[in-house]
Design a protein around this nucleic acid. Structure first.
Lengths: 190, 190
DNA sequence: GTCTATATGTTGATAGAC
DNA sequence: GTCTATCAACATATAGAC
């Protein structure tokens, strides 16, 4: 049935996302996804011709989600700190499952990825950085937050703190991540 | 010959280090190393029984090197900024070859690694963080650098900025890494 | 839309010759 | 110390049945 089809495709994306963030792109197989969903290897190939296509779809998915978040933040009456919390929240959730963000995961495997993915991931990073940059700029203008660097530089600092923060949390635990997260916010407030 | 033996073992370590930082642990094989050194797969297994053993040796290697650097920095009359530059330099070099630091690389593959490596990598992180922390503390005491957070927190921030900075550089180029690197130092100076 | 069956390559690893 | 030869396990992927 058509409904079942859509469900399975979505499920594959869901599991694929999980695996990329938990194991990394090179460390899971279509067989792993199939096992998780109680279907066969070949069924996964039906929905996504190859692993490369699955990864592309996943990146597209993230781009869509961040485009949505960027719009929500733009139209929201929330303060800058509240908006940044919205951005930080997913990283905190990743820590709970010993997972890392997709950008960090892809960056680590970058030199083994097909060109198609390499060029697409740049858009995702641009999108995220611009969103944080705009939030920072707006918050500074309103006097809600303070920082000395350019908004772009500050966005880079925050993003790298979070990306490597969740990676570190895997090894030394959530404590270090939380220290980083709190310090970030504290610095912007003071 | 015994001499040849040692050379090959060292060469394997050298290539292994390169591959881990360029491809990641799960994305290179003993065959890749063998090809690079014009020896056979089996010869690599002679020097390091399994991939796990090679990784262990590599981590041991890093621990030794950082222990040496920590001692050098302790005994040096260099200023805090100079010492931090010594710490930052390797990250900058990694960017030149599209490589990432071993801690980031291992963190990304962490959930697929054998327990033996998992427990050992903690020591390496402790070592690096303590070294940076001590350098920061000493520099603050001497009035050479300034920061508001605890030295431990500041060390975490710097380390995550650099680790994710080199990952980002792979994708969006060295420019972003250099922005991060300069901002780090500038903030400590002001 | 999912299956079985199969092809083809690569992986990590070992036994035993030189 | 390095080789050849070989292994079982797993990878990505496709053809064709149901």
């Amino acid at each position: 049935m058509s409904v079942r089809n859509i469900d399975t495709k979505e499920e594959i994306l869901r599991i694929g996302k999980q695996f990329i963030q938990y194991y990394g792109y090179n460390a899971f197989s279509y067989a792993d996804i199939a096992r998780e969903l109680n279907i066969k290897n070949a069924a996964v190939h039906y929905h996504f011709r190859g692993k490369e296509d699955l990864l592309m779809a996943l990146v597209d998915n993230y781009i869509e989600n961040y485009q949505l978040l960027a719009k929500q933040l733009q139209n929201s009456k929330m303060g800058a700190i509240g908006k940044l919390d919205k951005f930080i929240e997913p990283y905190t959730n990743l820590c709970e499952t010993d997972s890392i963000c997709i950008i960090g995961s892809i960056a680590s495997d970058y030199n083994t990825l097909p060109e198609s993915v390499k060029s697409k991931i740049t858009s995702l990073i641009d999108l995220v950085l611009n969103m944080v940059e705009q939030t920072l700029l707006e918050g500074k203008k309103k006097g809600e937050i303070h920082f000395l660097e350019s908004a772009r530089t500050q966005a880079l600092l925050i993003m790298t703190n979070l990306a490597a923060g969740v990676q570190l949390a895997r090894i030394s635990g959530k404590k270090d991540y939380n220290i980083i997260r709190k310090a970030l916010i504290k610095q912007l407030k003071s």
